[in-house]
Design a protein around this nucleic acid. Structure first.
Length: 438
DNA sequence: TCTGGGGTCCTAGGACCC
DNA sequence: TCTGGGGTCCTAGGACCC
């Protein structure tokens, strides 16, 4: 087997730089929702020591006098850039598994590329992605996915690789492992790395020299798979047709909420978004869970979190049914909360689970009447089509709308109530934001 | 004042059944 | 006094990823 892992360098920052080249060479960070904390950093920001996850309000305190450009996240832009990159990869190697917004595994066996010079092929592919989209990518090629990931880090770190590192022989593999810190291996997180370090395991090579039984005992079967992959045995398979088993939509609120009405608006928005995700992957859910929690950073306040689930009489995917169930679960939470005074909620979310393909469902006499169910589904389908054409927030469930914002007169929703004061324009997806050349 | 969001897999332990 | 054994299902919690 042979895999290529293609990874966009500092994905979100690179997307921003494509449309704003003045950010090249400067320290740039991209922030999470509500401009909460740092989720992406340019190499310059990393070199200055800006840690991932740093709260934005601490950035100025920690780095006084430094010029750091902080941008709100613009997921519409990043999603569109990602699609462009992936479509180029797909042309080069049709057997592609998109692992996340910024990386994909390409299977090179049984492809038209057998007998080519893989190293040269990878260099050329990286150059083409850069030329056609402006995005810098690093490519690792090896016999297992874990080794391909590892190789891509070398390609990213050392310019000498010309954006592609190919681990071909056992000697090359051992050399690479000996230079690679164990905590940077895909699948080994901080917890395990700390424990491994205490037993003298520092590099990936050290790790592969542990006895298999010890690895399995302390890190379960998951750790053992990583161990085998590093030794060159391909054993992590990726489902090519992933259908998510749970779907979750949750947000922190810019300000804490306590009233049922405010919460009901947010929960309706989360529920409708879950329903939309269900329809997009052609499935239905049998259970709806609502959770809410207080602000863990306000230690002086009462801390607790609640969650309640509601089983649906039959699988559902329409906004109407999912929102209704979510409100029922939310009210069950509120009843408990009412005995605890008036909690201030900082975060809430909706999870849908018990997911089945929408082609496989059976009708149930416990469910709402079929005629009604069909109408709900048609309504959601029409809303999906309108939103696909006119933009995601053109049509929404009324329960997800609050009275208009006094400042702008615009109806408030859970999405537009998120703060993003420093967001770049929608360069590639909104005609009004297209760059003008004069 | 201000601290992200969305997933997966695995295991242990309890409930329950026969 | 003496109190089985084996299986399944579910859930909570831990660990990981991007």
């Amino acid at each position: 087997m042979l895999y290529a892992l293609v990874d966009c360098d500092n994905c979100y920052v690179s997307c921003e730089r494509v449309f704003n080249p003045s950010l090249e060479g400067k320290a740039v960070v991209v922030l999470s929702n509500n401009d909460g904390c740092v989720v992406a950093r340019s190499p310059e920001a990393k070199a200055m020591g800006v840690p991932e996850g740093l709260p934005f309000f601490q950035l100025a305190e920690r780095f006084p006098g430094k010029e750091i450009h902080a941008l709100s996240s613009n997921y519409t832009l990043y999603g569109d850039m990602s699609r462009r990159v992936m479509s180029i990869l797909r042309q080069s190697a049709p057997d592609i598994f998109i692992y996340s917004i910024d990386e994909a595994f390409l299977s090179l066996d049984d492809s038209p590329y057998v007998n080519v010079d893989y190293k040269a092929w990878g260099e050329e592919l990286a150059a083409r992605v850069r030329r056609w989209t402006g995005m810098p990518v690093s490519i690792g090629i090896a016999s297992t996915k874990t080794l391909a990931k590892l190789a891509s880090k070398f390609a990213k770190r050392y310019p000498g690789y010309r954006k592609c590192c190919f681990i071909q022989t056992d000697d090359q593999r051992e050399k690479a492992l000996s230079l690679f810190p164990v905590e940077d291996v895909w699948g080994i997180g901080r917890r395990h790395a700390t424990r491994l370090a205490a037993t003298g395991v520092k590099t990936a090579l050290d790790f592969t020299r542990l006895p298999a039984a010890v690895v399995q005992k302390t890190m379960t079967i998951t750790g053992l798979r990583t161990w085998m992959e590093l030794r060159g045995r391909d054993c992590i398979s990726l489902d090519l047709l992933p259908r998510k088993q749970t779907i979750c939509t949750s947000r922190s609120f810019p300000r804490m909420l306590s009233s049922r009405d405010d919460l009901a608006v947010a929960v309706a928005g989360f529920a409708a978004r879950c329903a939309q995700k269900l329809r997009r992957q052609k499935s239905m859910a049998q259970m709806v869970t609502v959770f809410m929690s207080t602000n863990p950073f306000r230690e002086e306040l009462d801390q607790f979190s609640l969650s309640r689930s509601v089983s649906l009489p039959a699988p559902a995917q329409s906004d109407t049914e999912i929102v209704r169930a979510a409100h029922e679960a939310m009210d069950a939470c509120m009843e408990i909360a009412s005995r605890r005074g008036l909690p201030l909620w900082k975060r809430a979310g909706v999870v849908v689970s018990g997911i089945v393909a929408d082609s496989e469902i059976q009708t149930s006499f416990l469910d709402i009447p079929p005629v009604l169910k069909k109408k709900f589904q048609q309504l959601s389908a029409v809303a999906d089509r309108i939103n696909a054409r006119l933009g995601d927030e053109s049509i929404q469930v009324a329960a997800a709308l609050r009275a208009s914002d006094p400042a702008t007169g615009k109806a408030l929703t859970f999405r537009n109530s998120i703060l993003h004061d420093r967001r770049s324009p929608f360069y590639t997806t909104d005609i009004r934001d297209i760059i003008k050349v004069e």
